[in-house]
Structures are given as C-alpha cells and as structure tokens.
C-alpha cells in the first residue's frame, strides 16, 4: 500500500538509525534492507537517502568509512554513541505517538 509521504518523512531518520544500530551498512544495502523489513512499504529513494545520511553524519549521529568490496571501495555508515542516544529518544517519542493515536482511534493497545 502506498503511504502518504508525510507519514514517512518524519520517521525516516529513525528507521535508518535503527537499521544501522544492528550493523554497519552501505547506501544500497540500507534501501534494500528497509524495503525487505517493511515488506515493501518503505521504498526509500536514493535521492532521499543520501542527503539524509550526509545530514546525520554532519550531526555526528553517524560516521562513515571506506572498505574494499568486489574490486571497488564502498562507503559504509556506522551509528555513533550520540546516534544511539538519539535513536532511543526518537523511539520513545514514536511509542508515545503511536499509543496516543491508537487511543484516539480506540484501538486496543
């Protein structure tokens, strides 16, 4: 199901940080993993991902390094300590948000 973009845009950084909290990944791997884990709901475009990754890196929530792979050098991203703290904060905010929405919609939580 195609979702309203505004529902997705606010949580994209949280989703990316969550993926990177499991392991370091390169750009294409992030898009592919997100697509699979969300069962094709979150189909992030590269044009959205790379500005986001670079912004998070500037904010010191991520760091990057290069590693040789299949005869070329790939740029990997890793979450930092500040990134993990930020992720925890965002997850808590998300829990609060979804709980509030569920109550309003009178869904069982």
């Amino acid at each position: 199901m195609a979702l309203d973009k505004s529902l997705v845009s606010g949580s994209t950084s949280m989703l990316v940080l969550r993926l990177l909290s499991d392991k370091d990944m390169y750009g294409y791997e992030i898009i592919d993993t997100l697509d699979q884990r969300s069962q094709n709901v979150f189909q992030l475009k590269a044009g959205t991902l790379y500005p986001l990754l670079h912004t998070l890196e500037n904010q010191k929530l991520l760091t990057s390094y290069e590693k040789p792979a299949n005869g070329r050098t790939r740029k990997y991203y890793a979450i930092t300590k500040e990134g993990r703290k930020h992720l925890t904060l965002k997850q808590n905010e998300w829990q609060e948000y979804t709980s509030a929405v569920a109550h309003v919609l009178s869904l069982e939580v």
Partner: peptide
C-alpha cells in the same frame, strides 16, 4: 531511473555540503 530527479537530489545535497 530509480535514482529519482537529479536536480532535487543535488539541491538537497548542496544544503548539506
């Protein structure tokens, strides 16, 4: 084609860099 619009992406990256 999957990459999307290069102008939009470039502008977003310009803001970061």
């Amino acid at each position: 084609c999957e990459m999307g619009d290069p102008v939009d992406t470039g502008i977003a990256l310009d803001r970061v860099h």
